[in-house]
Amino acid sequence: MTPEIFIQILASGLLMGLIYALIAVGLSLIFGLMDVVNFAHGEFMMLAMYATFGAVLLIAIDPLFLAPLVVAALFVVGATAYLGVVQYAMRAKANLGMVQIFATFGLAVVIRGVAQLLFTPDYRNLPPNLLGGKTVSLGGIYLPLPQLAGGLVSVAAFTGLWLLITKTDFGKALEATREDAGAVALVGIDKNRVFTLGWGLGAALVGLAGAMLAINYYIYPDVGAPFALIAYVVVALGGFGSVFGALAAGILVGLVEAVSAVILPSSLKAVGIYALYLAVVFVRPRGLFGSL
């Protein structure tokens, strides 16, 4: 392998990793807040991609500028999922964990079915746009603009999230609720409201990832599944509930995947990611930055 190829692979892995991180952080946030693993996370991303596709066709503005709209739409989807399904799952008196898993799993299947019903199973792609298919070459290292934009947006989103959690009242309520959901009621925080907003925020984040990914990716009802599996591994690798962990783990997974595809047979590259996860949790059973 020439140094040039090696740098190219690292650069590509890094950009992909930032996207993985952005997909995963919403999952991690929701988990940190209320110990729920959302099995419909990949389907949220799929919805965001369809939303981008639909918005482009309807409004004919570049998808890049439609991302805020998609994020807002997904916020509503997430909040609705909480109010319509998850809050009932939270009330279970027995088997809490499994009820949540299967309530969200059922939700995922329903969303896929609805997507097939509404959008048909055809593969969709955005029409030519500002970034799609464009790439810049820096001394022989190619950086595709959609992924570059995705990476930058991801970094910006993480910065924003950090500010939100540390500097705002909502962030403090979020933090307080995740530490002791029972006690916050005493200080006048409406737990249900925080959870609703948390789900909205989690879905909005994966919505942002979906909007960025849609620029240069095919869209169909099952598009979320391969990303969701990676997102679960990223969240666990980083440590459930840790926002920074999701970022670090996402990047790490992107890099390891890119390198594995070269040193292993390509069809086994995911084994590299899986081995990384096992190696980390055998040494650190709570993931890289898990505090729980």
Partner: peptide
């Protein structure tokens, strides 16, 4: 259905 084919 791999998410990325960059290295390939």
């Amino acid at each position: 259905n791999t998410p990325s084919l960059t290295a390939e």
